[in-house]
Every structure is written in structure tokens, then in C-alpha cells.
Simulated assay, not measured.
Amino acid sequence: MSELPGFGLVERARAIAPLIAREADEIERTRRLTPGVVSALIENGLYRALLPQSLGGAQAPPETFMQMLEEIAKADASTAWCLGQCSVCAMIAAWLDHDTAHGIFNTAPGILAWGAVAHEARAVDGGYRVTARWDFASGSRQASWLGAHVRIVDADGVPCKNADGSPEVRTILFPVANATLHDVWQAIGLAGTGTDSYEVNDLFIAERFTAFRDVPSALREKGPLYKIGTGVAFSLGFAAVSLGVARATLDAAIALARGKHQSLAVGAMRDNAAVQGLIGRTEGDLRAARAYLYATAHAMWRDLCVTGEFSAAHRSAVRLAATWTIHQSARVVDTAYHMAGATAVFRSNPFERRFRDMHAIAQQIQARDTHYEDVGKAILAGSLTPSDLGAG
């Protein structure tokens, strides 16, 4: 009997979580994933969660991918963030010819990372030439390949256009050895992600190492997973990371409340009615956020598998659910942090780093308030109805 897509990913993530938790301090100190953690992620196939099955990947459904990231995030947010980033980057294989994708992802370590959309590549015979620097390449310190999303210009520097008049944007791929990496990631949270900058100088990129990422008509792989595109996968994945961080932080607060006597208080925290009520409400808030995110992902996936179409309504529904989940997770972490009192400020306790990590997550593009505005604008314009966003 053949295995179901993604079978065992969540169980494997849960099995290596204790190792990651033990390495978390070192990851924070060195600002990179430790060799032991990277090896465990590779050996258990977690980086290959969204890689096509034709290349030996799991091609897992979104909900499996999300659960995998949740388990890792409970142990360490930086590890989960890098894993989510590089797993989604691997989806580009669905837009590449098989031999090219095989060479990238089946040559150890087979990890790809990339940063934000920026700069131009000039079309030349057989490919493109580019001189540019990009930022926000989470996971680049473990990667063997890097990518970048660039606007294409012709030999005269004139921007190339798609048939609909929009700018032509391609994703270009190149070995990490062809780039210069800049250690710039001195951040308040997610310190271990190594979200560095990287640059190339007059680098030639052959045509076969480029792709029209997230363009359904350019797909070479079958199956519904790649129709959702990398943007939606990032949203679901990073929202799941936020849930894992929130779960771990609230669990730490619960454990603390069971045994701590607050300064000047007569009884234990666990006997304080205010603390009891706060724990109950916060538990409900976290469970509601998780249920909303997973219900949205499930409905999107169900419809996509039946119809074969990924609609604008699905995209809006996922974006709204992911944004709200990240914000709600941040509120849960804030509540747990404040509940812990002075205990929370010490690095030796399980609150301070998670507080910083969560607020670094909440500053990322997936958590922008403008996503609410986009959905609200579409609803008010009549192009989107509340029912399009799922049951509510």
C-alpha cells in the first residue's frame, strides 16, 4: 500500500522536537540552526514536505504542513520559521523542468532559500544577467541554492510585459556559492533564522533556472497543492508557526501558575480566581484562532480538490484567517508573558525569547493590517461576500 501524501511528517516533527528544544539556546546564541537540528530536519524529510512526489518529496496537504510547523514551533520558533520558509521555496520545483529540479533538490542538502521581490534581470541570449542585492533570506545559512524574484528588462533596459500588460516577474535560482551573503540579521526576535541579505554581480542565469512562480498556466506538476501558490503557503505556514509559539508560551504560563506563589500573595497562583479566569479565556482564544485557521485551510483544500480551481475568494479567506491568527497568537503570548510577572524577563525561563519571537513574527508581511483593508474593500465593493470567506 502506498503512503498518503505527507504521512508521518507530523509524527517525525514531534519526535525531534525535544532535540530542537535542547538546542534552542545555542540557536539563539549563534543566530543559526545548529548542525544537529539541520541534520534531523533533513534526515526526517521535513524540508521536503511540499516538494513534488515525482522528485521524492511528500507533496503534503496544507493541513499536514501546518501541523508539522506547529510541532517544531513549540520547541523553537526560529527553526520552525526556517523550515517553513525553505519548504515553501521548494514548491518552485513544480514550475521547473524535472531534470533541473532534480539537480537542485536531490543533491544534498537540497535546500533553497530566497528573499523579497526586488531589482531587475536583463534578458540576454540563453538566459539573464543580474547584478543586485536582496534582503530577508530566512534559512539561507542552511541553503545550497538561493533564489530571487526579479522584474525582467530587455537588452535596452525596457521593462518586459506579460500579455495582460503587467510587469514580467521571474524567479531566478543560483547556487549559494555564486552569491555573497551579508550577516545583517541583528533582530529582536527569530534570531536563529539567519534572515540575511545576499548579492550577485553580473551573474548569468540560464533560462532553465528561472520560472514564472505562482503562475498556474506555467505549472509542470499536476495536483492541487501547487495551484495555491507560494504566497498562500507562506501565509498558512507562518500562521501555524505563530500558533505553535502561542501554545508553548501559554503552556509555560499554566505550568508556572500551578506552582508559583506571587509576591505578597497569600495563596498560590493556581488558587487565584483572576488567574483561573484569565487562563480559561486565553485557552479559548487560542483554540478559536486555531480552529478558524484550520477550518479555512480545510474548506479551501476541499473545494480545490473537487473543482481544481483556486479562486480569489479562497485567497482572501486564507489571507484573512492567517493574519487574524497571527495577531490573536500575539495576544495570547502577551497575556501569558504578563501573567508570569517578573519571572518572564529572565532568559533562563521560557517566556522572554518566545515573546520576542512572536512579536518578530507579527511584524512580517503575513501579519500586515492592510490585509484586513483589502478584504474589507472587496466586501464593500461587492466583489466578495462574507459567505465567500467560509462559514461564519
Rank of each mutant, 00 (worst) to 15 (best):
P159D: 01
E207V: 02
V158K: 09
A239Y: 03
L225R: 03
C160S: 11
N162T: 02
G231F: 13
D202C: 07
L236N: 04
A257Y: 04
R247T: 04
R170K: 14
L256G: 02
V241Q: 10
N178S: 11
A187C: 13
T180R: 11
G223P: 04
S242N: 08
V184N: 15
S242A: 11
A218F: 04
D202A: 14
V232M: 08
P175A: 12
R208K: 12
R220H: 03
F238R: 11
A255G: 04
R247S: 14
G223T: 03
L203K: 02
G165Y: 02
G192Q: 09
G229W: 06
R258P: 01
G189Q: 03
C160W: 07
K227L: 13
A255I: 00
D251G: 09
A206Y: 11
E221D: 02
I172T: 00
A252F: 00
G231P: 03
S197V: 02
G192Y: 07
A239E: 02
L203H: 03
A218D: 04
G157C: 07
G223I: 03
E199T: 00
A252S: 01
T249A: 10
T249P: 04
E168Q: 13
E221C: 10
T195A: 14
P159Q: 03
R170V: 00
K222V: 11
I205Q: 10
K227E: 10
G229E: 06
A252C: 01
L181P: 10
S242M: 11
T230E: 09
Y226L: 09
G237I: 00
A206M: 13
A252N: 00
A163I: 06
F234R: 04
C160V: 07
F234N: 05
D202E: 12
R213L: 12
S217H: 12
P216R: 15
G229N: 06
P167R: 14
T193I: 02
Y226K: 14
G192D: 05
K161W: 06
N201F: 08
T193M: 13
E199G: 07
H182A: 15
V169D: 09
G237Y: 01
D183I: 13
I188W: 15
G223N: 12
E207R: 11
A253F: 13
F234C: 05
E168S: 15
P167Q: 15
F204Q: 05
A257I: 00
I172N: 02
R258E: 14
E221L: 09
T249K: 09
A253E: 08
A218L: 01
L256A: 06
T180F: 12
G223S: 11
A177S: 10
D214K: 04
N201M: 15
T249Y: 08
S197F: 11
A218E: 06
S242Q: 05
A253D: 03
T249C: 10
F204A: 05
L256R: 09
R220V: 01
S242G: 09
A257V: 00
P224W: 13
G237K: 01
A248Q: 03
R220P: 01
S242L: 09
T230W: 10
A177I: 00
P167Y: 15
L181Y: 08
E207C: 06
V215L: 12
P167S: 15
A252W: 00
T249N: 06
D202M: 06
L243C: 07
R220W: 02
R247G: 12
K161G: 05
V241T: 01
